[in-house]
């Protein structure tokens, strides 16, 4: 984290999202600075996934604005937002099960951009050695952990500037969770700015610089991971089950 002058790369301001009559996101704002890893913490149903989908244009917001690198992307279509440099890794992986590993990567491929690291399948196989051994395997026939690696790799093929990672540790074996944490740190080192959502405080603490706590679609707390570690009351109120 650049301590001196944080430069925002992703700014969401006053988001309101509804499903039918249900008010899911209420006046939700957050900032992701250049080179930062920021986590949205919260229980199931707090609105973390909806936040990510709203930012990505997959869910239509009723109000609020989203800026990526200073450009207004509010209400743009998902493919436009993706091409503007936003990578999205969904919670439920959503790999293309009938396609091979290589084909999944091909779907994610987008032109290089000057301000973001450039990825090729070979480079990604370096980062995810498991995938290298199953290039022609049908993605639907891989284990959950392998699918999780593939969905991250697929998104990286778009050479994103900002990465949205929705619950990357969910449902994974502990050894794979460690691998995922190492991956996030490596991506941070590459210069990516990362917003992740998590319920796993331990995992979040290991990889994140700052945290927002989301409850009932509202931001309840904002602070560095160190500050959160010292604040037992906040953790007990919003995070323990």
């Amino acid at each position: 984290m650049t301590a001196s002058a944080p430069r925002p790369v992703l700014e969401a301001r006053d988001l309101h999202t509804y499903y039918g009559g249900a008010h899911i996101l209420v006046d939700l704002s957050f900032v992701l600075n250049d080179g930062e890893v920021v986590v949205l913490l919260g229980r199931n149903g707090a609105g973390k996934t909806t936040t990510m989908k709203s930012v990505m244009g997959l869910v239509r917001m009723r109000a609020g604005t989203v800026h990526l690198e200073g450009a207004d992307i509010t209400g743009r279509e998902p493919h436009v937002i993706a091409r503007a440099g936003m990578g999205y890794v969904p919670e439920d992986r959503r790999i293309f099960g009938d396609l091979t590993v290589m084909e999944n990567l091909e779907v994610g491929r987008q032109p290089e951009r000057p301000d973001a690291p450039v990825w090729t399948p070979e480079r990604l196989f370096g980062m995810f050695p498991n995938l290298a051994e199953m290039r022609t395997r049908q993605a639907g026939r891989m284990s959950g952990g392998e699918q999780q690696m593939l969905t991250v790799a697929r998104t990286l093929m778009g050479n994103p500037r900002v990465l949205l990672l929705d619950e990357p540790s969910e449902g994974l074996a502990p050894v794979i969770v460690d691998q995922m944490a190492a991956t996030i740190q490596a991506l941070k080192a590459e210069g990516l700015s990362i917003l992740l959502s998590e319920q796993n405080l331990h995992f979040a603490t290991a990889v994140s610089d700052r945290a927002y706590i989301v409850e009932k679609g509202r931001i309840r707390y904002e602070g560095t991971m160190d500050a959160l570690a010292d604040d037992a009351e906040v953790r007990n109120t919003y995070l323990t089950v």
Binding site: E77, P78, A82, Y88, P90, R94, F96, V107, G108, R154
Partner: peptide, 8 residues
């Protein structure tokens, strides 16, 4: 939808 979220 996922395809479009990947920029297509």
């Amino acid at each position: 939808q996922m395809v479009s979220a990947l920029g297509v």
